[in-house]
Design a protein around this nucleic acid. Structure first.
Length: 419
RNA sequence: GUGGCUAUGGUGUAAUGGUAGCACGGAAGAUUGUGGUUCUUUUAGUACGAGUUCAAAUCUCGUUAGCCACCCCA
């Protein structure tokens, strides 16, 4: 086997495509019913789009990005996530001038050069949504409600929405300072990773899995204590709204996101059946990002779902239900007529899949092929039929065959299918 | 990125260092124009590269890839 797909990048084969298409279709319908419209941004961006927004000390930026130079020595990066490019686009095209509030969704491949595992690829796919232009807790509530409903629509049941608030930029900084101070005192008993985290990304110490670190974190100052009054109010109202609208969530004080741009509300959706990579989605508020990109002060919330992980959590796969017809032909003359008849059936019945023989195979093997493709009926066209200008239609289930005029084949098929 | 486990036809599996076999799948056929069951035939493999040995799927090393844990994350 000489050629292989690049490590961590997978082909989605025909046998698996149905679930992908179904997921995409369902997500589109659901998101559009909430007033979201799709946005498509390029896969390549100027590297600084990500370094500035995600944070240049975060792991995503320091070791996981596919970054390279183009022929003119510009540093380009394959998008590791969807929010930063959207905000870039939002500011570039001054979309804040078009409408005060914009609801956007996207779906497509993202790239991160991590060590692949189950549920973790280097090219993976996300579905995401962003509400740009609202500071209100209600935007947070609606987006969480929406994602929760959509996951249920996908057929996922036992997911958990973890919820926390990091507070506004000031709160976040104050909290980081407080935490840093506290951890410095305990530094000697922390694990190696956490020691570097104190310098690079203090908040992450809170969700370290090391036992002593967990204990240290338990008595550390929590995010909730350092929220300013408006932030606390925002968070309380959000929780209240979710409770009243019966969206289940779990307040998780040590939930911290890995991307620097998050402020205020953060949430993470996990699914227990997925093992190590159990986060199927995550999101939060990023109120200063639009401004960081040079736009106006704009509140925004969003989330992203990992499609591969959702598929792993799904139990049943949907099956295609379109009826199938197979046009079996024998001889050159019949082949031509067969192609024409197939065309006619397709035109009159757009919801039917019509196969024709493309190999000049024997009738036997054409029948076999028809069966393999789950054909409901076969139109047989051979020399005998041509002589009398008729075609034979065989109902595969009942084995009944009828002889009909060439012109009326589509009509007869309609009768059999019951359309 | 670190550590561990693994690698045999398309898929799932077998082979004390000594003939790579089985099942499923694919293809063709079973008196020449009719599918699903059955039967026959056929197809296709030791991930890659070195080494040890008379002899390697099997032992050693390297590479690559997958899985698991960590890291991180969707």
């Amino acid at each position: 086997m000489k050629y292989k797909a690049i490590r961590g990048m997978e082909d989605i084969l025909p046998k698996d495509i149905a679930i992908w298409q179904w997921l995409e279709k369902t997500a589109r319908m659901e998101l559009e019913s909430y007033g979201y419209t799709e946005i498509r941004t390029p896969i390549l961006e100027d590297t600084s789009v990500f370094t500035r927004s995600i944070g240049d000390t975060t792991d995503i930026v320091t070791k996981e990005m596919y970054t390279f130079k183009d022929k003119k020595s510009r540093s380009l990066t394959m998008r590791p996530e969807g929010t930063a490019p959207i905000v870039r686009s939002y500011v570039e095209h001054a979309l804040s001038q078009v409408t005060p509030q914009l609801k956007l969704y996207y779906m497509g491949p993202m790239f991160r050069s991590e060590r692949p595992q189950k549920g973790r690829l280097r090219q993976f796919h996300q579905i995401g949504a962003e509400v740009i232009g609202s500071n209100s807790y209600f935007a947070d509530a609606e987006i969480i409600m929406q994602v929760s409903g959509m996951l249920k629509l996908f057929g996922l049941t036992d997911f958990i929405i973890k919820l926390n608030s990091l507070g506004c930029k000031k709160d976040k900084e104050a909290f980081a300072g407080k935490l840093k101070k506290y951890l410095k005192e305990k530094e000697s008993i922390l694990c190696k990773d956490c020691k570097t985290r104190i310098k690079k990304n203090v908040l992450r110490v809170l969700d370290c899995k090391n036992e002593t670190c967990v204990q240290v974190a338990r008595s550390a100052p929590g995010t909730s204590e350092s929220l300013c009054t408006p932030c606390k109010d925002h968070f309380d109202k959000l929780k209240n709204t979710l409770t009243k609208t019966k969206v289940k969530f779990k307040e998780t004080g040590n939930l911290v996101r890995g991307l620097d741009y998050y402020t205020g509300t953060v949430f993470e959706i996990t699914h227990p059946s997925l093992g190590g990579q159990d986060a199927i989605g995550a999101g939060g508020r990023y109120d200063s990002l639009v401004k960081d990109f040079g736009g106006p002060e704009t509140g925004a919330v969003g989330y992203a779902l990992g499609m591969e992980r959702i598929i792993l959590g799904l139990k049943k796969e949907p099956k295609g239900t379109l009826p199938v017809a197979y046009v079996a032909t024998l001889g050159d003359e019949a082949k031509i007529r067969g192609i024409q008849i197939a065309e006619k059936i397709r035109k009159e019945m757009p919801n039917m899949i019509v196969f024709t023989d493309t190999k000049d195979a024997s009738l036997k093997s054409q029948m076999r092929n028809a069966d393999k493709n789950n054909a409901k009926l076969v139109v047989i066209l051979g020399e005998d039929e041509l002589k009398i200008s008729k075609a034979t239609i065989r109902d595969m289930a009942t084995k009944k065959q009828i002889s009909v005029g060439l012109e009326s084949v589509p009509e007869e098929i309609k009768k059999i299918v019951g359309a």
